[in-house]
Design a protein around this nucleic acid. Sequence first.
DNA 1: GTTATTGCAAAATATTTGCATTATA
DNA 2: TATAATGCAAATATTTTGCAATAAC
Lengths: 143, 143
Amino acid sequence: MITNMENIKNLINNKGVKPTFHRIKILEYLMAHKNHPTVDKIYEDIVKSIPTISKTTLYNTLKIFVDKGIITELTITGSETHYDMKHGDHHHFYCTQCKQIFDVHSNCSYDCNMKESVDGNRIDSYQCYYKGICKNCLKINVI
Amino acid sequence: MITNMENIKNLINNKGVKPTFHRIKILEYLMAHKNHPTVDKIYEDIVKSIPTISKTTLYNTLKIFVDKGIITELTITGSETHYDMKHGDHHHFYCTQCKQIFDVHSNCSYDCNMKESVDGNRIDSYQCYYKGICKNCLKINVI
DNA sequence: GTTATTGCAAAATATTTGCATTATA
DNA sequence: TATAATGCAAATATTTTGCAATAAC
């Protein structure tokens, strides 16, 4: 039987990254929290179980994961970077009122994963996002 | 005869913003420089003709223009915000090597301007961008 | 035992804020 | 003159860096 931790370890290993304890724990966290956390949020949560972890390690590790294509960084707000496990094709919706980022599964035919280049430029990644007011905030505003 | 400055003045006025000298000059700059400048770049250029202008005014003005939908802010790199006049429907390509942002006129059928909402969330703006190596850098790398 | 990882503190960078000054209608 | 815009300096927020301590293999 392969444990979840073994799976994560393998995933990191397969990308050519040494699966240290911290790295496994950080990826484990991101797999369990697909609500696009910031560095601060990840730190705040993860420091409870690993009191000695530092933000520098977090920054280091997240950068490595992004470079290796394990996770995606979302630079939507202009202030903090949000992080997201790669999980299926989806876009993002940023609510300018409650400041949350939601996954949206738009049925548009735009799928850049199928493209390798545009206008002769080599595409390595892409991102689409919307900004507006989410349905929850719309409801609250009406009342 | 309506001068260019008159046109810019009217554009600002029509959005309910008082067209001060600085605001006109900043918009004039953005209309003439559609290469997605940062605050620093705009300041560096504009301070030559208006030596007394401050970065605070630049930040203030750009924020107003964004809020009023006159310009778009591009938060692609995660560090500096880039600014872009609204001009036709296009996406952006960020070259991770030369750090430049290019317009790309993708022929995909993805046009969120036609949508008012997604999954019940109200869309106010949207952005799509690619990251990769631009054709110029690809050429240089080969040599 | 050597090399990579980690953690601390300081530095760097970008943006925002408070408030006094200046311009504008 | 009243109101809004501007500019300075300080504060804030986020991320990066240098280097010493530690851990991993």
